[in-house]
């Protein structure tokens, strides 16, 4: 049960959403955009979040599209993970999403919510980071297209009132070789100790990590640098480039996470190595 009160708005258009946000914040009140609600409701019930209004974006058509258009795949921010898995337009994204939470939760968790919420794992962003995806952001000045790393880099970077409308994935990457592996403490249904997603693009392997640090990140390596007879040196190189301390928590110690990551990277090298 959530003890604090708030107002609920379900706008039908982007403009309505932006305007109502502006109106609420103009009254010195806090508004948040609301999509799947799983995180907002579970945090609110234990008073880890507070706000005066939620703006439910699920009725906005642009936030609900999932379609291929020309050379782009467009996914609305309020599209739930189940739909992304079932749509199948981007196999790596589908594979990653299919391992987030569990099926019923995925009926509710949205792409936008997963990548902009408080949750530190944000696994769904990995395939987007790897493909230099773009996003459409709406604000008082209208809509604009930005690279994904302009809305998330270590932390969400949207300005107050800005609404993530959709994600635009360039189809040129979609059929590239890819891999995905998620390791948990013990369960299939759990947050990751480490999730690794990767895409091979020419001589480059782009690797996305979730769970290893308190935020997801991407590292690129040169395929030719991998020596399958001695993968250790390249693995050490990668671990040296990890941008933040390795997480040490109840899911696993930092040492164990490193062990798991090393195994995953060996698997990854073997996988791409086997393609030659």
């Amino acid at each position: 049960m959530i003890t604090f009160d708030f107002d609920y708005y379900r706008p039908d258009t982007i403009e309505e959403a932006i305007n109502v946000y502006k109106k609420i914040t103009g009254q010195e009140k806090k508004a948040i955009y609301y999509a799947g609600g799983t995180e907002i409701v579970s945090m609110s019930r234990v008073n880890q979040l507070s706000f005066d209004s939620v703006i439910d974006i699920k009725a906005i058509p642009e936030c609900n599209v999932i379609e291929t258009k020309d050379d782009k795949l467009i996914i609305g921010s309020a599209v739930c993970l189940t739909r992304i898995c079932d749509f199948g337009g981007y196999p790596l994204l589908g594979a990653v999403c299919r391992r987030i939470a569990e099926h019923t939760a995925r009926d509710m968790i949205t792409l936008g919510g997963n990548i902009l919420g408080k949750i530190q794992y944000k696994e769904a962003i990995l395939p987007l980071l790897l493909t230099d995806s773009k996003v459409t952001v709406a604000g008082t000045a209208g809509k604009s297209e930005k690279p994904i790393d302009r809305i998330f880099n270590e932390k969400p970077l949207l300005n107050a009132g800005e609404l993530l409308v959709n994600i635009i994935i360039d189809k040129k990457y979609i059929n590239n070789p890819y891999s995905h592996s998620k390791k948990t403490k013990q369960e299939k249904i759990d947050y990751p100790l480490v999730t690794i997603a990767s895409v091979k693009n020419d001589d480059e392997i782009r690797i996305g990590f979730s769970g290893l640090c308190v935020y997801p990140f991407r590292l690129d390596i040169i395929f030719g640098n991998i020596d399958n007879t001695n993968p250790e040196s390249e693995i050490n190189n990668i671990l040296n480039r990890v941008p933040a301390p390795i997480v040490n928590d109840i899911l696993g110690s930092a040492e164990y996470r490193e062990f798991v990551t090393r195994n995953l990277l060996i698997d990854l090298f073997n996988y791409y190595g086997g393609m030659n």
């Binding site: 569990e102 013990q186 369960e187 299939k188 249904i189 759990d190 109840i250």
Partner: peptide
Amino acid sequence: ILNPNLRSYKPIRVDE
């Protein structure tokens, strides 16, 4: 106690 809920205390599910 660091895991006093079913998000972090995980009883077995069907797949295991």
